[in-house]
């Protein structure tokens, strides 16, 4: 591109040096490609770290529910179930709340109110997991145990999910804390989606005499449905990998129980708790395989969310932060 200059200048001009440009570009390219390298690295390390367990247990690893380091027998089912259940609880709580908040912020709130609320929600996203965990142990769990869970049990006790002894630490508490942690991302992505709904859409509904809520339901929500679904999937991706806060409140017991008041265990929590003290090779390999399962799950869910958000909103808006 800078060639024409050297042609039009007198021959006394020193020659244009290309190598700094070329090497700078190359270094930048390498840095950009590091992202791909990291994905490969993650995949490779987890794969090679779990080979022993994969060879020993085969696909049965995923469906066996015995986790017994003493007799060196490992099955991932309780953790997979725990991860899925706690994430689903989180989604059930966080998606309606997050979407409602996004609707409030884009459709209803006075303009002066919007920025402060958005700031608060963004700051919520900045709170470290371990602090939520600390708060969960000493504030949320006692409150749930003494006030919320007994009431839930007496009202909803006819369902099998709300029976059994109440310890405080439980699947439900884990789901609740994950819900709090994924609320900001669901809210902010939903807000982006709602903002991309063209105003014409709303005006048309108003012109037909719709009330505010009807405009939202007919014109906005139905238009944004797919994007909001993408936001929920993105939230799911986050929920699956939440580690510290969940580890601190879920109870860490590798049992599968119908009751949501019973303690559970997730993939991320068992890794966090047992990895540093895994004594046998097979134990460590099994933990690596749990990590592999976790990564495959989260990458698949995240990639799905990215695709959904991207096809919908064009490049750039699918950004995750």
């Amino acid at each position: 591109m800078s060639k024409p200059i050297s042609e039009s200048t007198p021959p006394a001009q020193r020659p244009v040096r290309r190598w700094p440009d070329v090497s700078f570009r190359l270094v930048a390219l390498l840095a950009a490609l590091s992202v791909v390298a990291l994905i490969v690295l993650v995949g490779w390390e987890l794969y090679s770290g779990s080979r022993l367990a994969v060879a020993k247990f085969g696909p049965g690893f995923l469906v066996h529910s015995r986790w017994d380091p003493v007799s060196d027998e490992y099955g991932a089912l309780p953790f997979i179930a725990g991860t899925l259940v706690s994430s689903l609880i989180a989604l059930v709580i966080a998606v309606p709340l997050g979407v409602a908040t996004a609707l409030f912020l884009t459709e209803m709130a006075p303009v002066r109110l919007r920025q402060p609320v958005i700031t608060v929600i963004e700051l919520l996203a900045a709170v470290p997991s371990v602090i939520f965990g600390l708060w969960g142990i000493f504030v949320m769990i006692p409150f749930l145990r003494d006030h919320v869970f007994p009431v839930m049990q007496s009202v909803l006790g006819f369902l099998p999910f709300f029976r059994g002894p109440i310890y405080g630490v439980s699947m439900l508490a884990g789901g609740l804390i994950v819900a709090i942690m994924i609320l900001p991302i669901i809210t902010s992505v939903s807000r982006e989606i709602l903002r991309s709904v063209p105003n014409l859409q709303r005006e048309a509904a108003y012109a037909l005499g719709a009330t505010h809520w009807e405009v939202i339901r007919i014109a906005v929500l139905s238009y944004a449905r797919r994007g909001l679904f993408g936001a929920a999937v993105l939230g799911l991706g986050r929920a699956l990998g939440e580690t510290m806060a969940v580890t601190m409140v879920i109870g860490n017991r590798p049992d599968i129980s119908l009751s949501l008041f019973a303690p559970g265990y997730t993939l991320a929590s068992v890794i966090a708790n047992e990895f540093a003290e895994a004594t046998s090779d097979l134990y460590l390999n099994s933990l690596f395989e749990l990590g592999l399962v976790l990564v495959v799950l989260t990458i698949a869910v995240n990639a799905l969310a990215q695709l959904m958000l991207r096809t919908l909103a064009g490049p750039g808006t699918g950004k995750v932060n």
């Binding site: 994905i39 990895f275 699918g318």
Partner: peptide, 22 residues
């Protein structure tokens, strides 16, 4: 690259611990 960077952002932090451990 953008796609993979965003996916990478979603990799659970505990996994980074495992990878660097190895």
């Amino acid at each position: 690259i953008r796609f993979w960077a965003d996916v990478l952002n979603g990799v659970p932090s505990i996994v980074w611990g495992m990878v660097v451990y190895a």
